[in-house]
Design a protein around this nucleic acid. Structure first.
Length: 220
DNA sequence: CACCAGGCAAGTA
DNA sequence: TACTTGCATGGT
């Protein structure tokens, strides 16, 4: 029963990997850039995030010290293209303040903590929910925490593997308890699910081009 | 023109 | 606890 679901999940990975190849996520040069990108991409197309990241890079502001020195009102217009810019400016500032106050700016020390401790700490910060926290843990700290997003839920529920109403923590547990806790594997898997998710539009659950049409679990 | 995107917090019952 | 609503730009 559960074993079968595990096999299907592993099959989904294999089909996606064969179709799309390695994704090499997260698309960022530094752990700090991963964190900023993870906040900026909340409910936002990545393309719009890239525009904001480039603005920060051009101005030499994509670092903890530079951003910590800015006010929310100074930062907000710089990340305008990512949408929700007032909210996200506040969230970025909240992270920098925590890094300063609790870790004296030492990001490596923050990220060096045990996976569960780090995850808890991130979840306690303003603007960091489960997906953002797990993205930071997996792609900035490189610790095995599976990242669940809207695509993950849509793909698994449409294949009848979980209820569409499953709570976030339970869906994460499906992956964590079924799969070997391997960082590169988790990193690739989430990236591949995002890649595939873009082929599933809301109106037409299965596009002809989706590699998962070959999955042994029939889509709903 | 409408709809959507790699969520989250805050408010309400 | 379980819903609902606000946040906002840029692409299709």
């Amino acid at each position: 029963m559960k074993g079968n679901r595990r096999e299907i999940i592993e099959e989904i990975y294999d089909l996606l990997y064969k179709a799309f190849g390695p994704q090499h996520w997260w698309p960022a040069e530094t752990p700090f850039e991963v964190i900023i990108g993870a906040i900026l991409t909340q409910n936002t197309a990545w393309k719009n995030v890239v525009l904001s990241i480039n603005v920060l890079k051009e101005r030499g502001l994509l670092g903890y010290e530079a951003l910590h020195a800015l006010s929310v009102d100074e930062l907000a217009p710089l990340i305008r293209s990512s949408g929700y810019f007032n909210q996200k400016a506040k969230k970025i500032k909240a992270f920098c303040s925590h890094l300063h106050d609790r870790w004296n700016g030492d990001l490596d020390a923050l990220l060096a903590q045990a996976m569960d401790i780090l995850r808890r700490e991130l979840l306690g910060l303003h603007g960091i929910g489960p997906e953002t926290a797990d993205s930071i843990v997996l792609y900035a700290a490189c610790k095995p925490s599976f990242v669940v997003d809207a695509y993950t839920r849509r793909i698994l529920s449409r294949h009848g593997l979980v209820s569409p109403d499953i709570v976030h923590e339970s869906l994460r547990a499906v992956f964590m308890e079924s799969l070997p806790n391997d960082v590169p594997y988790f990193q690739e898997f989430h990236a591949l699910l995002v890649c595939a998710g873009k082929l599933y539009c809301r109106r037409t659950p299965l596009c002809a081009s989706c590699p998962l049409k070959a999955c042994t679990a029939p889509p709903i």
